Simulated scan of single mutants.
Amino acid sequence: MNRRNTFAMLALALACKLAAAQAFPTKPITLIVPFPPGGSSDALARSLTTPLSQALGQPVIVESRPGAGATIGADFVAKSKADGYTLLMGAVHHTIATSVYKKLPYDFEKSFAPITTVALVPNVLVVNAKSAATDVKGLIALAKAAPGKVAYGSNGNGTVQHLIGTQFSGLAGVELVHVPYKGSAPLTTDLLGGQIDLSFDTLTPLVQHIKGGKLRALAVTTAKRSSTLPEVPTLAESGLPGFDQGTWFGILAPAATPRDTVARLNTEMAKIIHSPEFRKRMEEIGAEPVGDTAEQMAARIKDDTAKYARLVKDAKVAIE
């Protein structure tokens, strides 16, 4: 009798566990975007959350928590309950922060469970349409003529735009002033207004201004040209060989999130990302959809953490 009771209790516990897993989600999910509205992270998050809400049968709410090069939002998610209801729109910036910040309050590889990479977005070197620089060679000439006076904006200290700026300065032999912002929206506003001279931001928040004639794209920072701006050369083609920097964005959960919850989220997100509707939306904003496995995203994070550790060391970038 005791053995039968034990088996019955174990079976009941297993059934309850399975039922709980199948029930996810039972309440709204919050997706933390660590930048202000108006940038690539926000655009990708909102493109994903509407169909994801329909697939999961629960609202998926986008919440912005910007600041400190995207680390404030990441820290919030790292310390959230690991139940799948608080997620992070992570980015390549977080792999850079691991080396840039001396006292980061979380470990990006250990504190998160990767779910899937949403998209890759090329970065683009842009200047105001009124700038005298019409190509990369002309921009370098202007910077050399006024050392320490030409300013570029980034999404914050330790972001990929910051690192691209330091790499560009080194290869071109120029002295640029770095101006960090909390995100693409305030950065683009100042670029359009002439408060800064250039940026290496992602294509998504810039494409409408480039096509509208308010900004001039001089080069993309990736190894190949963008299909959205096929006429714009790469930095390598413009005389700076070896440049291949872009930005990826992906979804992560706190590290201890149940595997079946991560698997459910990956399955639903991958279906959306691989859909024709999502691909069409990505083409409109200059992004390339990915939708990989959690394991593939984890490998991407590991590789980029090592890659940017070397670049950060070479650039001597450090933040207390």
Rank of each mutant, 00 (worst) to 15 (best):
G153C: 08
H162M: 05
V179K: 14
V174H: 09
A172L: 13
K144D: 10
G165E: 13
A143R: 01
G148Y: 04
V174K: 14
Y106V: 06
F168W: 03
T95K: 00
G194R: 04
F112A: 00
H93S: 06
K79E: 02
K102V: 09
T71F: 10
L88R: 00
L176S: 04
A172E: 10
S99Y: 01
S80A: 14
K110P: 00
Q195P: 03
V100W: 02
K137D: 14
A141D: 07
F76P: 06
G153Y: 08
K103H: 12
G138D: 08
G69K: 03
V124R: 04
A146F: 10
V174M: 11
P147H: 13
K149W: 07
K79F: 00
A74F: 01
V150A: 14
V179S: 14
G156K: 01
Q195S: 11
K182Y: 09
G165H: 05
T159V: 15
T95C: 00
E109R: 00
D75K: 12
N128D: 10
K79M: 03
L191M: 12
A133P: 02
D107H: 05
K79N: 01
Y106A: 06
T98F: 08
K130G: 09
D75G: 11
K79G: 00
A129M: 12
D107Y: 01
N155M: 15
I72W: 12
G90W: 00
A91M: 04
F200K: 06
G183E: 00
S199N: 15
I115M: 01
H93L: 08
K102N: 04
V126E: 03
L104Y: 03
D83V: 03
H94D: 07
K149A: 11
V160G: 04
A145D: 13
K144I: 04
A91S: 13
G165K: 04
D197Y: 05
L198G: 14
G73F: 00
E109V: 00
A74N: 03
T98S: 05
G158E: 10
A97G: 03
N128V: 12
S80K: 11
V77C: 08
A141R: 08
